[in-house]
């Protein structure tokens, strides 16, 4: 795990991509809530009808691991740090719908109990860090493993999926800041992408390592993780 032995000052007031209240306007927050509530409702329905037997016990484990992982800020260049988001990891293992539930639990508890991320903006934070990452990361992983079989495909798919979701989340956050009049897009976007290009490498490494570990220990978890389809890249190999 990446860490440096510096005694913690108080964890930053504005950690990761967790937007505090005040950065984003009320209309943007309300749009965030509307999309997030709709997706969560659909996710509950989908997991209720489609969730595989293997996904169920993993949901609690993933929530715990992602919560803990998000506490570990790793240093990147320029006196900046970043931490895991985890949406891609969760989506690869339990599918995007169950991953939305897992990420909602993590981001929700961070806001409600740990004052990490605002309350008004919570819907937006779940959208950026949970919903976007789960679906985009899952889609990229599926696409890459569909082209490249076996362990190479899983490594490439999980790393690139994780990296791209961090960049996408940083982009969406920048757009929300711009729409709110907090920071112009041509100012916020390059800065956010520059920092998160490096943070995304950490996300990619952790996600790829975690997936490799799970496959090594329990290959059955990843082959039918969404309960409905069989991924089995080995079959096409």
């Amino acid at each position: 795990m990446l860490y440096i032995p510096i005694p913690a000052r108080e964890i930053p007031d504005v950690p990761g991509l967790h937007i505090p209240d005040g950065f984003v306007s009320l209309p943007v927050s309300l749009i965030g809530w509307a999309i997030t509530i709709a997706v969560i409702a659909l996710a509950v329905k989908k997991t209720n009808t489609e969730m595989g037997e293997k996904a169920a016990p993993l949901m609690g484990v993933l929530a715990a691991f992602i919560f803990a992982g998000q506490m570990i800020n790793f240093p990147v260049a320029g006196g900046t740090s970043g931490h895991l988001l985890g949406g891609t990891l969760a989506a690869i293992l339990v599918g995007p719908w169950a991953a939305v539930i897992v990420m909602t639990a993590v981001v929700g508890v961070q806001a409600l109990i740990f004052q990490d991320g605002g309350l008004v903006v919570l819907g937006t934070n779940i959208l950026n860090m949970g919903i976007l990452t789960a679906f985009l990361g899952y889609g990229i992983f599926r696409a890459v493993t569909g082209v490249i079989a076996g362990p190479t495909g899983r490594l490439a798919g999980s790393f690139s999926g994780a990296w791209l979701t961090v960049m996408a989340a940083a982009t969406l956050t920048s757009v929300q800041l711009a729409l709110s009049g907090t920071s112009a897009l041509d100012v916020a976007l390059p800065a956010m992408l520059g920092v998160h290009a490096l943070i995304g490498v950490g996300e990619g490494l952790i996600t790829a390592a975690a997936i490799a570990l799970v496959v090594a220990a329990r290959p059955d978890l990843i082959e039918r993780s969404d309960g409905s389809r069989t991924m089995s890249p080995e079959v096409s190999a």
């Binding site: 510096i6 964890i11 930053p12 990761g16 800020n73 900046t80 740090s81 943070i199």
Partner: peptide, 11 residues
Amino acid sequence: WASSHPDGLEK
């Protein structure tokens, strides 16, 4: 022992 640097959005 996590990094105490400001992270992405905060920076």
